[in-house]
Design a protein around this nucleic acid. Sequence first.
RNA 1: GCUCCCUUCGUCUAGAGGCCCAGGACAUAGCCCUCUCAAGGCUGUAACACGGGUUCGAAUCCCGUAGGGAGCGCCA
Length: 488
Amino acid sequence: MDRTTGRTFTRGATRFAPSPTGELHLGNARTALFNYLLARRAGERFVLRVEDTDAGRSRAEYTTGLLADLAWLGLEWDAGPGREDELGPYFQSQRGALYAQRFAELERQGVAYPCFCTPLELEAARHAQRASGRAPRYPGTCRELSAGERERRRTAGVPATLRFRVPSGRRIEFTDLVHGAQSFLSDDIGDFVIRRADGSAAFFFSNAVDDAAMGVSQLLRGEDHLTNTPRQLLILEALGLPAPCYGHIALILGPDGAPLSKRHGAASVRQFRDRGYRPEALVNYLFRLGHSSPEHDLLGIEALAAAFDVHHLGRSPAHFDEQQLRVWQKAAVQRLSVHETCTWLAAQLPAGLDPAAAQAFSAAVLPNVVLPEDARPWAQIIFGPPPILDAEGEQIVRAAGGAFFAAAARAATINGADLAAITAAARAASGAKGAQLYRPLRFALTGLGHGPELAPLLQAIPPGQIEQRLARFAHAPEAGVSPTTSKQ
RNA sequence: GCUCCCUUCGUCUAGAGGCCCAGGACAUAGCCCUCUCAAGGCUGUAACACGGGUUCGAAUCCCGUAGGGAGCGCCA
């Protein structure tokens, strides 16, 4: 009980309210993340509400995907689908009865009225208004219909929407969490639909009413809602419901400066997930997109919450930059345990590879991998046939000499995948050191002049292969004959 | 058309009148380390959209201009 208000005290909440009409978009993912962080930071609840009022576009599989992606990102909701409580249900399609009461309340007050205009008529009106240089607003055709006329049309079965009567001459003010003081004139707003002809609730209405019903105290949403806010404030005011503090964050832009969309390639969480991006990478990147922090390390979700600050949300739109995402991905990948790495790289490994070999491979290759596909060439090199050398490789191998490789191969036979033993033997046989010692070995073993560290790489090469790959150069030709083509 | 939002290095941003000839991170260039790549260390290049005000003093306040974006839907 709150002593000052006498009302039952409930913890505040933030929410994320997606509509299941597609995959979770990066922009929405960021909105979800920010709201989650805001809740965690403030000790509030994080509510997930599915806005599936558009029966035509909403699909169950999108809901499933949405929930899965959110969970994958690590954004657990305190209330929502699968976590029902007394403030639910959390699917708007199941909240019709609650809306009905509110519709009735508004109609009784005369704040809402039935509108019998057809979509065609409305479209024509908008078109005419635009053509004559005026704002496309509801012309008010049904605003002052008499009670008798309304009744007559209703009994005649004319389909009707319910419109909110926007008061004239009002100034609507509120303080935006990120943009500060905002002020709008009600005269710039036309009467808008709050209930569709099919009886379902429209966004402005259900969204606002549910926030109030679910105890949402503050929330962050896309800037495309900024100019819609006064409408929602008007609804809440008419119903005597508390309004949450709204904060509007700018849209995420693609490389060309246009709002990020499918046009720009991958734009959904699912697509990045499928390409092997780590959730920690995505979350850390999104955390810094339109939000600044002195923290420059890869942070866990709790640390992100502690570092989140609404005052450091930017007002200008940020560009999505995959290069930056890759930086976080690299950091996230380097922190993977060997076990996690094996799972992550599973698709790149030869089928039936035994666990120990998979671990050795993963450990060796991980420092050089950002996405799983980067491991594929290494899998080919390590598990495939002895690699063919290019001209540079041949030259370096030849310069090392046959004795060098004979000794190295012998050491491998005796000691196995022991780099120290192999280099010691090669050095003793040839006197080579430094690059003269390591590069020929690297080329002979991998066919390349660059790559992961040799020692762990040796651990990943299948038994017998080290010896074989080295021995093929043990009888180095005096000149001209290529062991890579004569052998193997 | 009307209303609203936005504009600092390549990118994300710090900056709430003097601490800023603008700071950080990533990217990038060079050097060091190193068998190579990566990592790490050091050094460097690089920005207040433009024009007017206000002020002793402006990236910061005001007014314009330009550019970008959003909303004005029986989409959310």
